[in-house]
């Protein structure tokens, strides 16, 4: 693991009556891509704004290279921000926007020119320098915002849902471009998004947040495969989440059946959440599975069929989401098998 650049220690933020951040502990590793992921209102933007210096935490500390920077105003911090709606200066053209930070630092005009042109090339906007920012498309404005921040060679670039306003195709392209840029320039990125796919594609580390708390921090694969709780499981990708009981190690009861699993260390008969990804539900002939249900809908998704399967087992009813490469008829009865290592058991 690399060098810690930024530390958030027990950061809390209260707006009026609302607690927006509740004891956030987080460190950001140099030259890595960290994403704060969560639904709107979870506190991710506030966390970013605290790092940028636009909000002061109610409690806690913020360290940069081991020293507290809480009292440092935004213009003295070695971080730059790409704002949600770009915040390009409407009274300046593209080149003047990019040059803004350098002019403040009183860099020589010819040096500024060189760096601005270099940046325009980096973000594929060569020849756009004299254009007023209002004449640019959303994607181009986005690039200007990035160039304007990067030209200052910040230690950390903060990005607040920078792709939120772009259409899907452009967003996909920019995701790859941003990732490439980050790797090429070797700058630490802290990225805020509510789009789980975006987070998984781009990040080295993802911090999943909800209701002002960090739910889980880890590599994208770990977050996806080993969600720590029902919220993360539900937020990252699709899941079947059921209530269950652990009668003993390696055994879990849910959906009216007892299943083998790989989890242990629970108290006897502890109530748990059981998470099963749709692609981990294997469809077999009716009667041959651990569970049986009736196919309610079948939607073709290209690589697979997405099915909703209505299951009844005694009093227990559940609508399963399952992916299968084999098509089943709507209304037919099917069996379902779940392998022990694909059952994720989580404490409530």
């Amino acid at each position: 693991m690399g060098e810690r650049l930024i530390d958030l220690i027990d950061v809390c933020k209260v707006f009026g009556q609302t607690t927006v951040l509740n004891h956030i502990n987080l460190f950001i590793v140099k030259n890595k891509f960290l994403t704060l992921l969560g639904p709107s209102g979870c506190g991710k933007t506030t966390t970013l704004r605290i790092i940028g210096g636009f909000e002061t935490p109610t409690a806690g500390d913020l360290l940069f290279e081991g020293k507290s920077i809480l009292n440092l105003p935004p213009h003295k911090r070695k971080v730059n921000t790409v704002f949600q709606r770009y915040a390009l200066f409407p009274n300046m053209n593209v080149a003047d926007n990019i040059a803004f930070g350098l002019r403040i630092k009183k860099v020589k005009a010819d040096v500024i020119n060189g760096k601005v042109n270099e940046m325009l090339r980096l973000v594929n906007l060569r020849g756009f320098g004299k254009r007023p920012v209002a004449s640019l498309s959303g994607g181009q404005q986005q690039r200007v915002a990035i160039a304007r921040a990067l030209v200052n060679e910040p230690e950390v670039l903060l990005l607040d849902e920078p792709l939120g306003a772009l259409d899907l195709k452009l967003r996909k392209e920019m995701q790859i471009e941003l990732k490439n840029m980050q790797q090429k320039l070797g700058i630490t990125f802290v990225y805020v998004t509510h789009d789980q796919e975006e987070a998984l594609t781009m990040s080295d580390t993802v911090a999943v947040m909800n209701a002002g708390e960090i739910q889980q921090i880890g590599a994208p694969e770990d977050i996806y495969n080993e969600p720590k709780n029902a919220f993360v499981a539900n937020f990252i990708g699709e899941s079947n989440i059921l209530g269950g009981v652990m009668p003993e190690d390696y055994r879990v009861v849910f959906a009216g059946n007892t299943f083998e699993c790989v989890d242990r260390g629970f108290e006897k008969d502890e109530e748990v959440d059981v998470v099963i990804r749709p692609e981990d539900v294997r469809i077999v002939e009716s009667g041959k599975g651990q569970l049986t249900g009736i196919v309610r809908t079948v939607i073709f998704k290209g690589v697979h069929y997405e099915m909703l399967i209505d299951m009844k087992n005694g009093d227990f009813e559940f609508l399963w989401k399952a992916h299968s490469t084999v098509m089943s008829e709507k209304g037919s009865a099917v069996g379902m098998v779940i392998a022990p290592d694909l059952i994720h058991v989580m404490r409530k």
Partner: peptide, 15 residues
């Protein structure tokens, strides 16, 4: 005036 413009300027080093 969009307050994020002022924040952007501060962010870029403007006092």
């Amino acid at each position: 005036m969009d307050h994020s413009l002022i924040e952007a300027a501060q962010d870029l080093g403007a006092d």
